[in-house]
Measured scan of single mutants.
Amino acid sequence: SKDTIRINGIDIDVKDLHEEWKRLVEEALKRGDEELAIELLERALKE
Rank of each mutant, 00 (worst) to 15 (best):
E42K: 10
L36P: 00
I38H: 08
E47I: 05
I38F: 12
E39F: 03
D11T: 08
H18R: 11
K15W: 05
I5P: 02
L36M: 11
L36K: 11
D16P: 05
E35G: 14
E42T: 07
R23K: 14
K30Y: 09
T4Y: 07
L41D: 00
W21D: 15
D33I: 03
I5R: 03
T4H: 12
E20G: 10
E20R: 07
I12L: 07
D33L: 12
E35H: 12
L24D: 04
E20L: 06
V14W: 12
L41Q: 00
A37V: 07
L40N: 01
K2A: 14
H18M: 09
D13E: 08
A37P: 01
L45N: 11
K46S: 11
D16T: 12
E26P: 00
D16Q: 11
W21C: 14
E35I: 14
R43E: 07
I5L: 12
G32A: 03
D3M: 01
E39T: 12
E26M: 14
I5K: 04
V14M: 12
I12C: 07
K15S: 14
V25M: 12
L40I: 13
G9V: 02
E19Q: 05
K22Y: 08
I12Q: 04
R31T: 10
E27W: 01
K46W: 02
E19G: 06
L45Y: 06
G9T: 03
E19C: 10
K2D: 10
L24T: 02
E47Q: 10
K15R: 13
E47D: 12
R31G: 07
A37K: 00
L41P: 00
E27F: 01
D33E: 10
K15C: 05
G9C: 06
E19P: 15
K22I: 15
A44Q: 03
I7M: 05
W21E: 14
E19H: 09
I5T: 02
I12T: 04
E47K: 06
K22S: 07
W21I: 15
E42L: 11
E19Y: 09
A37G: 02
A44S: 05
D3W: 00
K30G: 13
I10R: 13
E42D: 11
E39K: 15
E42F: 04
E19D: 13
V25L: 13
G9K: 04
H18V: 06
D16W: 13
K15N: 09
L29Q: 02
L29G: 00
E47T: 09
L36W: 07
D33C: 07
I12M: 09
D11I: 07
L40Q: 01
L17E: 00
A37D: 00
I7F: 03
K2W: 12
E42M: 07
G9Y: 03
R23T: 13
K30M: 12
D16H: 14
D3A: 09
G32Y: 03
A44I: 06
E42N: 13
D11N: 07
E20T: 06
D33K: 05
E27P: 00
E34V: 15
E39M: 08
V14L: 07
E34F: 13
E27K: 02
I10F: 06
D11L: 08
G32W: 03
E35A: 15
D3L: 01
A37L: 05
I7L: 09
D3Y: 00
I38E: 06
I12N: 02
I7G: 02
L45F: 10
E19I: 05
D33H: 07
L41T: 04
N8C: 09
S1F: 10
R31N: 10
D13F: 08
D13Q: 09
E20Q: 08
H18P: 12
E47M: 05
K15Q: 11
R6A: 05
W21H: 15
E26Y: 10
R43W: 03
R6V: 10
K30R: 12
W21Q: 14
D13T: 09
D11V: 09
E34A: 13
L17K: 01
D16G: 15
D16F: 13
R31K: 12
H18W: 07
K30C: 02
R31Q: 11
K15V: 06
E42C: 14
I5N: 02
T4S: 09
K2P: 15
L17Q: 01
D16Y: 15
K30E: 15
L36F: 09
K15P: 04
G32H: 05
E34I: 11
A28G: 00
R6D: 02
K30P: 00
I10N: 08
I38Y: 13
E34L: 14
E39S: 14
K46D: 06
I7Q: 02
G9F: 05
R31I: 07
W21S: 14
T4Q: 09
E27S: 04
R43P: 00
I5D: 02
D16R: 10
L45E: 06
N8H: 14
E35W: 12
L17Y: 04
G32E: 03
L40S: 01
D13Y: 10
V25I: 13
K22N: 05
E39R: 15
K46N: 10
I12E: 01
L36C: 08
A44F: 13
L40T: 04
L17G: 01
E39A: 13
L24Q: 11
K30I: 13
E34T: 15
V14C: 14
R6Y: 05
E39H: 14
I38P: 00
L29F: 04
R23V: 13
L41N: 00
D16A: 13
L29Y: 04
G9Q: 05
V14I: 15
H18D: 15
D11W: 06
T4N: 08
H18S: 15
T4I: 14
E47Y: 00
K2C: 07
R6H: 11
D11E: 08
E35C: 15
A44R: 01
K22R: 15
V14A: 07
E26S: 07
I5C: 01
L17S: 01
I7S: 02
L40Y: 08
K15Y: 09
D13L: 10
H18Y: 06
T4F: 09
V25P: 00
R6G: 04
R43A: 07
L24H: 03
W21Y: 13
A37N: 00
E20N: 15
K22V: 15
K22C: 08
L41E: 00
E26L: 12
E19V: 04
I12P: 01
V25A: 02
I7H: 03
L17R: 01
L17F: 06
I12V: 11
E39C: 13
L41K: 01
I10D: 04
A28Y: 05
L41H: 01
R6S: 10
E19A: 05
D33N: 13
E26W: 10
W21M: 15
R43C: 09
L41Y: 06
E20W: 05
I5F: 02
D13V: 12
E27H: 03
D13N: 14
